[in-house]
Design a binder for these strands. Structure first.
Length: 256
DNA sequence: ATGGCCATCATGGATGGA
């Protein structure tokens, strides 16, 4: 089966492009971030018409997450336990035999800033809920836009980005806490290569100049590690008319 | 040297993104 994550940077602005991609690629499960649409306006009809069940958790203008699946979606939970969050950034659900968590981690803006403090507190709450209520012996997928580049291979200018937001030690320590709980960065199971980016700034012709970061991740629990045969970044989808600034990432899992 | 793009809301320009 194929599971995808994609920060679409507005689902409605990207709808025609996205549904064309969905029809072509035929992923079994898709996690979307930055849908930027309230639940009453979520464009579920064109997605359901392509054979997908859909769960969503959105708000006006900013943020917003959704899970699409060819099989029924159950036990949907929005947000993080014991964390009052006005921003729609987490959606968990069971589908296709997986417990899936679709995440849009806060950006953090700059260090120091209120937004950076919010990012750290948000990640602390995610870690706490994961330790308290999730089971790494089950098939668990945490995926989405983590807004953290795991290591120096994952950003185009390590010196320029040194201890900047998305790369700072406190952020990476929090990502490591999730990994230490019992998750594996699926991309790194298959390659040590640097420069495997998933996001490129719209400015400065960053995509053409390979100025990007790998911040869209699949973190998988131990039962899924032997099933994961490939992780690919769909760079083609970053090209053309009105792309998102993120490329979709696809993970292939063998049957259990 | 700085910022250079894009989406939203709204209809100008601020905010946010990363």
């Amino acid at each position: 089966m194929l599971i995808a994550t994609h920060n679409v940077n507005s689902l409605r602005a990207r709808l025609a492009r996205f549904t064309a991609w969905l029809e072509r690629v035929q992923p079994d499960v898709v996690c979307l971030q930055e849908t930027k649409v309230t639940d009453d306006l979520f464009p579920k009809e064109p997605i359901e018409a392509l054979g997908y069940h859909v769960a969503f958790h959105g708000q006006k203008t900013y943020n917003g997450v959704a899970i699409l699946s060819k099989t029924p979606i159950e036990d949907v939970v929005a947000g993080i336990a014991d964390f009052e969050d006005p921003q729609a950034r987490s959606l968990s659900a069971t589908t296709a035999g997986l417990r899936v968590r679709c995440l849009y981690v806060p950006n953090g803006k700059e260090i120091p800033s209120d937004k950076y403090e919010y990012k750290k507190a948000w990640l602390d709450a995610l870690i706490a809920e994961t330790r308290a209520s999730w089971d790494p012996s089950q098939p668990v997928v945490l995926t989405g836009d983590f807004n953290i580049a795991p290591d120096e291979r994952d950003l185009w200018d390590p010196e320029g980005w040194h201890e900047k937001v998305l790369c700072s030690t406190p952020e990476r320590e929090r990502l490591q806490a999730l990994l230490d709980w019992g998750l594996t960065d699926a991309h790194r199971m298959h390659t040590d290569e640097a420069g495997q980016y998933t996001w490129w700034d719209y400015r400065q012709a960053a995509f053409r100049r390979a100025m990007g970061m790998r911040i869209d991740l699949f973190l998988i629990s131990a039962p899924l590690v032997p099933r994961c045969t490939a992780v690919t970044i769909d760079r083609q989808e970053r090209k053309g008319e009105k792309p998102s600034d993120h490329a979709p990432v696809l993970m292939e899992l063998n049957d259990a």
